[in-house]
């Protein structure tokens, strides 16, 4: 693994175009809960704007999607840039979900590599990883538990340069300063997917984060918190 702890940190917020269907706001400064709370608020606000069809927070960023047939993207970009500095912060008291994790072993096969990278034992990695409370900062790549914030910076692990195939279903993974919790395996869907993340454990009893038979279908929302419990560390 090449060591590269540099993450783009902007001095000022930046608004850019994503083709002709969306505008992306990248917030200034490091990733913090206070900034992310403002992103969530702006996401809710911008979704009400005329011409906006959807919004999606990222880590320290917000995507605002429009209908390209009717949108005035320049005006939207200007409005986003002007609105952002005045968006207030404010605590959202999310719910807490505790999830038991088997670190290492099958499904957590990258734990030894991560431990070697950090020059510590697999048990040390598990302990460091399970110590903090994680906040759901942004939606993930598909309906699930989203991108989590709160990992101990000592576990910073650069994303893989070349993606590897890893099993889907309740996986606990890390990359950069982020950590992920995979949803349970869905019968009939792909069993594995390419990823640049490191799988350090699995959560055998993870509940489904999105269930169409429930109203609302989502188990968790932005601002909810997840606590990992070390059930076992396997060699």
């Amino acid at each position: 693994m090449s060591v590269n702890r540099d993450v783009t940190v902007l001095q000022e917020a930046r608004v850019s175009f994503c083709g002709n269907t969306a505008v992306l706001l990248d917030a200034e400064g490091p990733l913090t809960l206070a900034t992310q709370e403002r992103i969530w608020r702006l996401s809710d606000t911008a979704r009400q704007w005329e011409g906006v069809v959807d919004t999606q927070p990222g880590m320290n960023s917000l995507l605002v999607v429009v209908d390209p047939k009717t949108a005035d993207l320049e005006a939207l970009a200007a409005r986003l840039g002007e609105t952002w500095p005045a968006v207030p912060s404010g605590r959202i008291e999310g719910r807490l979900l505790e999830v038991g994790v088997v670190y290492g072993g099958e499904g957590g096969q990258d734990l030894p590599e991560v431990a070697a990278f950090h020059k510590c034992t697999p048990a040390d990695v598990a302990k460091l990883h399970a110590a903090p409370e994680y906040t759901i900062f942004a939606p993930g790549v598909t309906a699930g538990f989203g991108y989590l914030f709160g990992m101990d910076p000592r576990l910073f692990t650069p994303r893989r340069q070349v993606p590897v195939m890893r099993a889907l279903g309740g996986g606990v993974s890390i990359a950069g300063i982020q950590s992920n919790l995979g949803k349970p395996y869905v019968e009939g869907s792909a069993k594995a997917a390419p990823t640049g993340w490191y799988m350090i454990g699995r959560a055998p009893d993870v509940p489904s984060p999105f269930d169409f038979d429930k109203t609302p279908p989502n188990l968790v929302s932005l601002g909810d918190r997840i606590r990992f419990r070390v059930d076992r560390v396997e060699a």
Binding site: N4, V7, T8, P57, G58, S61, Q161, Q178
Partner: peptide, 19 residues
């Protein structure tokens, strides 16, 4: 080469991985 934070993307985006 800087680590990127995860962000929302749209169909049509031309991403450039380290390769």
């Amino acid at each position: 080469l800087l680590e990127m934070r995860s962000h929302a993307i749209v169909p049509g985006v031309i991403q450039v991985p380290p390769s």
